[in-house]
């Protein structure tokens, strides 16, 4: 590390510390905060109230498994449905916009407005979209679907056009020299070349939308968040904690499935197939030897 890097690093560190103390201002109000939190956790949060896993008393449960009438099940399933529909709709809408936004596929007069559109959709967080759509559609899942879809288009569109811009030049140049149209180049070259990343982004977005299902539910846009919001208003924080633990476990499972799917579509081994231990344990503990995948230079037999 040279002297200039050290000076710049120290300067940035000093600026950060200065700004931090400047922003906090009065440290007196922090005193006693940790003990207050302890009291709150002991008296209101812990232990979690697992009655959220039991069937609700009303309406009467007629399902074979009573668990499927519980708040946790109903909320999580609704959140998963909203997240799935919003991710799929968002993907379908974002794909053509991201093709238009990619600088290597579209002219500037198309790319710039498309990027502005995506930035606009992304700059409003999903909870603000949810507020707007709750006003339009009233409380419920429809508002949730629209809110998540709008945010998904903005966020996923950005990830997608960046992936497409990362496609190697040679296939694009070959297509251009051959006289392929922009639509052909996008559909037959850019999208297949970035397919693994596009799929990875969709899976990430689904997971993100499930996590955000708890947030947008707070403003009445359906899903498990709606139940969390109700319990918060009633001061039943132990039930809130129980639902948050359920959401955390669901997100972990989705994360595992998502990694497994990504590794399945990629034969070059840049995404390793996960194990349960690799999700729950630090990498240094869980690291295992993976067999070397078939490399690009290995090739196939000359005849079969």
């Amino acid at each position: 590390m040279n002297r200039r890097t050290v000076i710049v690093g120290l300067g940035l560190a000093a600026l950060t510390v200065h700004l931090f103390f400047d922003l906090v201002g009065d440290w007196g109000r922090v005193s006693g905060g940790v003990s207050n939190l302890g009291v709150f956790v002991r008296e209101s949060l812990w232990p979690p109230n697992w009655s959220v896993l039991k069937a609700q008393s009303y309406p009467v449960c007629e399902a074979r498994f009573e668990f499927t009438c519980s708040v946790a099940w109903l909320g999580v399933i609704e959140t998963l449905k909203i997240a799935f529909v919003a991710t799929m709709l968002g993907f379908v809408v974002a794909l053509p916009i991201s093709v238009m936004a990619a600088g290597n596929l579209s002219p500037t007069y198309l790319a710039v407005p498309s990027r502005i559109l995506l930035a606009g959709m992304r700059s409003l967080p999903s909870i603000i979209w949810a507020v707007l759509f709750v006003i339009i559609f009233s409380i419920g899942t429809l508002a949730g679907i629209f809110a998540m879809t709008f945010y998904t288009v903005g966020y996923l569109g950005k990830l997608q056009f960046e992936s497409m811009e990362g496609v190697k030049n040679a296939p694009l140049e070959s297509a251009k020299a051959m006289g392929m149209s922009r639509m052909e180049t996008a559909w037959l070259v850019a999208i297949p070349e970035s397919a693994n990343q596009l799929l990875s982004h969709v899976l990430f977005m689904f997971e993100y939308n499930v996590r955000h299902g708890t947030v947008i539910g707070l403003v009445g846009a359906g899903g498990v968040g709606l139940y969390i919001n109700t319990y918060l208003k009633l001061g039943q924080y132990d039930k809130v904690v129980a639902l948050l633990i359920v959401v955390f476990l669901v997100v972990l499972v989705i994360d595992f499935i998502s990694m497994a799917l990504r590794s399945a579509v990629n034969e070059e081994g840049d995404v390793e197939r996960p194990t349960w231990s690799s999700i729950f344990l630090p990498a240094s503990i869980s690291s295992v030897q993976h067999p070397t995948p078939m490399g690009a230079t290995q090739g196939l037999p000359e005849s079969e």
Partner: peptide
Amino acid sequence: RGGVGYIPQRLGLVSNL
């Protein structure tokens, strides 16, 4: 359209197809 065939040094193939 179709008049020029170009094989770049890096071949220009779509590796996922």
